[in-house]
Structures are given as structure tokens and as C-alpha cells.
């Protein structure tokens, strides 16, 4: 280094350091590849953008809590795919592109299967994912026994035979709420033990109750124009 001024060495060193460090500067834009369809990251991101507003977990959200395991124990993939693709009841919009939504058919299927993988487990125990026909007369007595303590007029859970409520909730929606329960609202699931019934309701009894409740629905469906 004799003869070369030290500041020249310093300068060259600084330039070399700057040039080689160029790709590690914090301002360099990074390419973030979007998560692949069906992956857990994709499922969570998609759920958070499109579903979470209504279907959040236990503490939050107003509709069926899809982030809770309780729903997934009886919901079949076919049922979830149908509801996601074509909408459900009065207020759930359709999400498949064929119905005007944002997702391709593949994405709808990947989302339904992905949600089960992320939030729930396998369905089983022989519970029907869709509502089964019930007996209205039998349901009336069961309702008085199992539901009325919370759902009679003036009780904390509010009336279920209110035509406004029934105009907004489909039978399938009542089925899902009865089977999954709404822990955050204090509503137990169908097979919850009650003083009068240590083993809870059977599937048929739940259907009977829903047949009774749904019979109060106004004849003409009050749908938005």
C-alpha cells in the first residue's frame, strides 16, 4: 500500500462495498410470489378477505362460525362447496364465477377443502349435512322443552317464531345453527346434555323442532326486491 494515499483506498473500498451490497439494501423491491391455490396460506388469506366478515371464530362474527370445529363435524364437502358456489339462504352471496362471484370452480373446491384442513376435521357420526324432513306436531312439544327457556318471547335468546327472523334464515341455516350451536351466544349444540335429556336431542328431533319453527314463516317469502 506504500505510495497510495489511504483515503483513495477507503474510497475504493466504500464504492466496492456499496456496489456489492446493492442487492441487500432495504429499499430494494422484493418479489413475493402469491401463495398457491389450496395451500394453507392461500386458504387463510382467502377466508380472511371473503368469509371472515360473517363467519369468524367463537368470539366475533354474526353468522355460522366456520372457524370453529363444531360446524365441520357434520358439514360435508359437497354441502360447503354448494353453499360457497351458489350462495345460501337469503344473505349468503354466491362466490362462483358462474353465479357472478370472484372464484373459479377449482378455487371454490380448493377453498372448501382448505377450510376443513385449516379449521376443522372430518365429518362423520352419520349426521346429515342437509336438513332432513321433520314432524311439526312432535317438534312443538320438543321446542317447549328444549328451546323455549331461551327462545320464548322476552327471553334472552329472542323469539324464533318471529316472521322477520324466519324471513332471513333458511331451514338449512336453522339446521346448521342447531347442530353446531353458537357457543359465543350461549347456545349449546344439539347433542348438549339438558336436565330433561342427558343425551341431548337426536337428529330426527332436531329436524322436528325446525319443522315446527319453520311453520311460522310467512307464506310468501319476504325477499329483497
Amino acid at each position: 500500500m506504500n505510495g497510495v494515499p489511504s483515503r483513495v483506498v477507503l474510497f475504493i473500498g466504500a464504492v466496492l462495498a456499496a456496489v456489492t451490497a446493492c442487492d441487500r439494501l432495504p429499499g430494494m423491491p422484493s418479489e413475493v410470489a402469491p401463495p398457491s391455490i389450496g395451500s394453507e396460506a392461500w386458504t387463510r388469506a382467502t377466508f380472511n378477505t371473503y368469509c371472515r366478515g360473517c363467519h369468524a371464530s367463537g368470539a366475533d362474527g354474526a353468522s355460522i362460525p366456520l372457524m370453529d370445529r363444531s360446524y365441520w363435524t357434520f358439514a360435508s364437502d359437497e354441502r360447503v362447496i354448494a353453499a360457497t358456489a351458489n350462495g345460501q339462504g337469503v344473505m349468503m352471496p354466491a362466490f362462483s364465477q358462474s353465479a357472478g362471484g370472484p372464484f373459479t370452480d377449482d378455487e371454490v373446491m380448493a377453498l372448501a377443502r382448505g377450510m376443513r384442513g385449516v379449521f376443522g376435521g372430518s365429518s362423520g357420526a352419520g349426521i346429515s349435512a342437509t336438513i332432513v324432513p321433520g314432524d311439526r306436531a312432535n317438534g312443538e312439544g320438543l321446542f317447549a322443552n328444549a328451546c323455549a327457556p331461551c327462545h320464548r318471547d322476552g327471553a334472552p335468546g329472542g323469539s324464533l317464531v318471529d316472521p322477520a327472523f324466519l324471513a332471513l334464515v333458511s331451514d338449512q341455516g336453522l339446521w346448521a345453527s342447531t347442530l353446531a350451536g353458537r357457543a359465543v351466544l350461549g347456545m349449546p349444540a344439539w347433542n348438549h346434555a339438558m336436565p330433561s335429556r342427558p343425551s341431548g336431542l337426536t337428529q330426527e328431533e332436531a329436524a322436528d323442532i325446525i319443522a315446527f319453527v319453520a311453520s311460522h314463516r310467512a307464506a310468501k317469502k319476504d325477499a329483497p326486491p
Partner: peptide, 8 residues
């Protein structure tokens, strides 16, 4: 509307 759940 689709991403923020109603607070518990």
C-alpha cells in the same frame, strides 16, 4: 364487509 367480523 367481507373481512371484518362483527366484534364479539
Amino acid at each position: 364487509w367481507s373481512s371484518l367480523p362483527t366484534p364479539g
